[in-house]
Amino acid sequence: METFFAVAFSFPTVVFSVLLCVAIIYWLISLSGMGDVDAEGDLDVAGDFSGLMVTLGLQGVPLPLVLTLLFLAGWLTSYFIDLALGALVPSGILHWLYALAVLFTSLVSGLLVTSIVVRPLRPLFRRAYLPPLQKRIIGTPCVVISSSVSETSGRAEAHLDGAHLVLQVRSHSPLSHRERAILIEHIPDANAWWVVPEAEFLSGGSAG
């Protein structure tokens, strides 16, 4: 145990030890209900940082989880390298150069391991990032499957994210069987959708 603490709290491993402790405290606070883990906090940051995370394959899961995995992987790499080699490196400038090399290696290793670990986790969080169906389905093409569509009745089928949907639809412009239309607005009270003929939608027309 003495060796464990000596390595864990010596440079360079102490850098990851501190970061990992911060991550653990964050999760404890979140689990206690004093804070919220933002499922949409995946990579909701603009600019180069977001692009870098996507390049590294770290997108698709909450950012706090990505950082926790990164800190853990970096800590394990740094700890075991320093445990095996730390005592062999003489003190002084050479030891500082060794420590910086371990720190860099652990960071790179942590990024690689994290990018691998998050891949199977993405499907678990995918639904958290999807906006409600009412928003996603706007603008989706559909095909009339009832004999006709009017302002009071009608049905159509659409495909969204691989799912086959059969929807109640309404239209100000009469539509007949197998005609194509575009879903433009949800009608909450009727659990139906306003549609417009596809040709009208593409030409820039709309229906209220």
Results as ranks from 00 to 15, higher is better:
residue 185 E to I: 09
residue 97 L to A: 12
residue 92 G to R: 04
residue 27 W to A: 08
residue 171 S to V: 02
residue 91 S to I: 07
residue 42 D to Y: 03
residue 51 G to A: 12
residue 203 S to P: 06
residue 175 L to G: 09
residue 156 A to H: 01
residue 34 M to L: 14
residue 163 A to Y: 14
residue 132 P to G: 07
residue 109 S to R: 00
residue 1 M to S: 15
residue 59 Q to H: 12
residue 208 G to D: 14
residue 98 Y to K: 02
residue 174 P to A: 06
residue 50 S to F: 00
residue 151 E to K: 05
residue 15 V to K: 00
residue 90 P to M: 06
residue 66 V to H: 06
residue 93 I to K: 03
residue 29 I to C: 12
residue 142 C to G: 12
residue 120 P to F: 03
residue 128 A to F: 00
residue 172 H to M: 07
residue 141 P to R: 01
residue 35 G to K: 09
residue 193 W to S: 06
residue 12 P to G: 11
residue 4 F to R: 09
residue 15 V to L: 10
residue 40 E to D: 15
residue 73 A to L: 06
residue 128 A to L: 13
residue 21 C to G: 11
residue 174 P to I: 00
residue 153 S to R: 01
residue 44 D to T: 15
residue 83 L to K: 10
residue 53 M to S: 09
residue 185 E to D: 14
residue 20 L to N: 02
residue 47 G to D: 10
residue 165 L to H: 08
residue 101 A to G: 10
residue 90 P to K: 10
residue 155 R to G: 01
residue 137 I to N: 04
residue 73 A to M: 08
residue 103 L to I: 07
residue 155 R to E: 14
residue 126 R to I: 04
residue 156 A to K: 02
residue 32 S to F: 09
residue 56 L to H: 08
residue 24 I to K: 02
residue 125 F to T: 01
residue 8 A to S: 13
residue 82 D to W: 02
residue 127 R to A: 14
residue 139 G to N: 09
residue 70 L to R: 00
residue 72 L to R: 09
residue 80 F to W: 15
residue 148 S to Y: 08
residue 138 I to K: 05
residue 32 S to P: 06
residue 170 R to T: 11
residue 171 S to E: 04
residue 15 V to Q: 01
residue 9 F to S: 13
residue 24 I to L: 14
residue 134 Q to V: 07
residue 128 A to I: 10
residue 59 Q to N: 14
residue 166 V to Q: 03
residue 45 V to N: 06
residue 38 D to C: 02
residue 193 W to T: 11
residue 5 F to D: 14
residue 141 P to D: 13
residue 164 H to P: 13
residue 103 L to C: 05
residue 145 I to E: 10
residue 112 L to T: 10
residue 58 L to G: 00
residue 207 A to Y: 02
residue 139 G to S: 12
residue 92 G to C: 08
residue 59 Q to Y: 01
residue 121 L to I: 07
residue 135 K to R: 14
residue 180 R to L: 14
residue 202 L to A: 11
residue 114 T to Q: 03
residue 117 V to G: 01
residue 158 A to I: 04
residue 110 G to E: 03
residue 83 L to R: 13
residue 191 N to R: 09
residue 89 V to D: 03
residue 92 G to N: 04
residue 92 G to V: 11
residue 92 G to M: 09
residue 200 E to F: 09
residue 13 T to F: 01
residue 173 S to I: 10
residue 133 L to V: 08
residue 179 E to P: 09
residue 161 D to Q: 07
residue 188 P to K: 03
residue 116 I to N: 00
residue 42 D to I: 10
residue 77 T to G: 13
residue 185 E to W: 05
residue 174 P to V: 01
residue 197 P to W: 02
residue 67 L to P: 04
residue 175 L to I: 05
residue 83 L to F: 07
residue 119 R to I: 11
residue 122 R to P: 11
residue 80 F to I: 01
residue 181 A to T: 09
residue 181 A to Q: 01
residue 177 H to Q: 13
residue 163 A to G: 10
residue 152 T to I: 05
residue 126 R to L: 03
residue 136 R to W: 07
residue 78 S to K: 06
residue 45 V to G: 06
residue 8 A to G: 11
residue 204 G to D: 12
residue 60 G to H: 00
residue 137 I to A: 04
residue 56 L to I: 12
residue 100 L to W: 00
residue 130 L to Y: 02
residue 91 S to H: 08
residue 10 S to G: 13
residue 142 C to V: 09
